[in-house]
């Protein structure tokens, strides 16, 4: 029999998360994307310090002027003479915040809901997932427009509306994963020990379904940003003078022939962000499930 000789050092284990992190950091596209996203995020946070202009400040001398390093409007100005660079950064704040918040909402609701449905199975599962199907079939645009009509245009409504829609897919993914996990023997071992259902879900089920959830999350963020842009394009997005990338792109699209910069700059930021999230999502998928490649 092995006896503890003295007090040997406890050896740190390599958790699956750590393995995944190492694999993720070996993926150049993912690391590059994280750096770019980090820079965009920092720029959005420290926006006021990066530009001499205010996002709603009108520069009467330069209405809809192209990019010009000498007068400080490095990305040019919009039709109201507001600096485009600072407006893009403020737009980044809104777009990224919408993306992150709506995704978090969908994450919390979707994971809990899906794990509960999948774990209990049977009738509970059937009822819960039918409810999801019903919500799925509601026309999303109609839902958003109704909200806007009743409560007026409000950025928080956009969060709620987007989160309320995105959690449905999350719940389905988590439920499917849970169904395959709840038959595993370590869940049975927990039952045999008398661990409560609640603790089994949070201690054994959710940590083991988190891989696909994280991947899906990184793909949801750009989707939400895109949906917000789409809403803004339709004129249902954030209220002036506040702005988002979608609003900026929609304004730019109207004047595409006269002032291309008004479309190109915000569109570049949006596309870059979407690419980055997708690369990170890809990298995460490979890192979390190396067998799946």
């Amino acid at each position: 029999m092995l006896e503890a000789a003295g007090t040997p050092q406890e050896i740190e284990g390599r958790s699956l998360w750590r393995d995944a992190r190492i694999r993720l950091f070996r993926n150049k596209a993912a690391v590059g994307s994280m750096i770019i996203l980090g820079i965009i995020t920092l720029m959005a946070i420290f926006a006021p310090m990066l530009s001499p202009f205010e996002y709603d400040q009108i520069d009467w001398g330069y209405i809809q002027e192209g990019p010009n390093w000498e007068n400080g409007h490095i990305f040019g100005t919009d039709g109201n003479g507001r600096d485009l660079f600072i407006r893009i950064l403020y737009g980044a704040r809104v777009s990224l915040a919408v993306g992150l918040l709506a995704t978090s909402v969908s994450l919390v609701i979707g994971v809990t809901y899906g794990a509960v449905a999948g774990y209990f199975g049977g009738k509970i599962d059937t009822i819960m997932m039918r409810f999801v199907d019903v919500l799925y079939s509601l026309p999303f645009m109609f839902f958003v427009i109704m909200l806007m009509v009743v409560f007026g245009r409000n950025i928080f409504l956009i969060f709620i509306a987007l989160g309320a829609v995105e959690w449905l897919t999350m719940a389905r993914i988590v439920r499917g994963q849970t169904l395959s996990i709840r038959r595993r023997e370590f869940i049975e071992a927990a039952h045999a020990t008398g661990v409560s259902n609640f603790k089994i879900i949070f201690r054994h089920v959710i940590p083991n379904v988190l891989g696909p959830v994280i991947v899906y999350m990184t793909l949801t963020i750009p989707q939400v940003i895109l949906t917000e842009s789409f809403l803004s394009f339709l004129g249902l997005g954030v209220q002036e003078p506040l702005t988002s990338w979608g609003v900026l792109i929609s304004e730019g699209a109207k004047v595409i022939e006269a002032s291309t910069w008004m479309l190109i700059y915000p569109a570049t930021f949006l596309a870059l962000t979407l690419f980055c999230f997708n690369f990170i999502g890809d990298g995460l998928r490979d890192a979390l499930d190396p067998k799946d490649r």
Partner: peptide, 18 residues
């Protein structure tokens, strides 16, 4: 009342330390 399983690895939660 306890139980030991056939597949030793599958009976341990991969995300928990031993």
């Amino acid at each position: 009342l306890q139980i030991i399983f056939q597949d030793p690895l599958a009976s341990l939660n991969p995300r928990m330390t031993i």
